[in-house]
Computed example of a mutant assay.
Amino acid sequence: MDNFKSLESLALHLSGLDLSITEHLHKALEKSAARVAKVAKDEIGSYQTSIGDFPAWAPLKSATESAKRRAGYEENSPLLASGEMRDSIQSKVYGDEAIIFSTDEKMVYHEFGTLNIPARPVLGPAVLRSGEYIRRAMSQALVRGLIGRLPRGA
């Protein structure tokens, strides 16, 4: 580590790290977004417990289970029929923002519910369930950007 003779020399050194910090944080954001998308995909097909303000998933109605069985889909696997909705979940990073989304238009009905469909949120809870991973990834990226590596034992 450099020894700085003044606050000015420290400030000049830190200002030169901007690009390194930005690059490391961007990579961490991409990894975090991919992690949230994976967690969201993994939630589909199993009843989820509540987290934060998001409710636990209500059991599927018997009529829904019967229709799934007749169609050859697995029973007791909420939101999972063909797997298309699960597989439509993606993440993209634009600058300093990450977006986790589904290209399946039915996802919005399940995420927020309708008059006939209880809310079975996937994307919001996935962010909360990934919170510790995101915090750790971003803090490690900041350290890497500042000193070029993680300290031993970190």
Rank of each mutant, 00 (worst) to 15 (best):
S9A: 11
A11C: 04
L12N: 15
L12W: 07
H13S: 14
G16P: 10
L19K: 14
I21R: 12
E23D: 11
E23M: 05
H24D: 13
H24V: 07
H24F: 05
L25C: 11
H26Y: 08
H26C: 04
K27L: 09
K27W: 07
A28F: 09
L29P: 07
E30I: 14
E30D: 13
E30T: 13
K31I: 06
A33Y: 08
A33M: 05
A33D: 08
A34E: 15
R35D: 13
A37F: 07
A37S: 13
A37P: 03
K38I: 01
K38Q: 09
A40E: 06
D42F: 01
D42S: 06
D42R: 06
D42H: 02
E43P: 01
E43Y: 05
I44H: 04
I44E: 08
G45C: 04
T49A: 15
T49W: 05
I51Y: 08
G52H: 08
F54G: 00
P55L: 04
A56Y: 10
A56M: 03
A58W: 06
A58S: 15
P59K: 10
S62Q: 15
T64K: 10
T64H: 12
T64I: 13
E65P: 08
E65D: 09
A67R: 14
A67G: 03
K68C: 06
K68A: 07
R69G: 01
R70G: 05
A71E: 13
A71K: 15
G72Y: 14
G72M: 13
Y73A: 03
E74M: 10
E74C: 02
E75P: 02
N76G: 04
P78D: 07
L79R: 07
G83R: 01
E84D: 12
M85V: 04
R86I: 01
D87H: 01
K92L: 15
V93D: 09
V93W: 09
V93N: 10
G95T: 02
D96R: 09
E97I: 11
I99R: 13
I100Q: 00
F101T: 07
F101L: 09
S102I: 04
T103D: 08
T103H: 08
E105T: 07
M107R: 04
M107Y: 03
Y109K: 07
H110F: 15
H110V: 09
H110W: 14
E111H: 01
E111G: 00
E111Q: 05
L115F: 07
L115M: 09
A119T: 12
A119F: 12
L123W: 00
G124W: 01
P125I: 00
P125S: 00
P125K: 00
A126H: 02
V127K: 09
G131D: 13
E132I: 13
Y133G: 03
I134E: 11
I134N: 09
R135Q: 14
R135T: 15
A137K: 14
M138H: 06
Q140S: 15
A141Q: 05
G145T: 11
G145F: 08
G145W: 12
L146I: 14
L146N: 10
I147K: 02
R149P: 03
P151N: 00
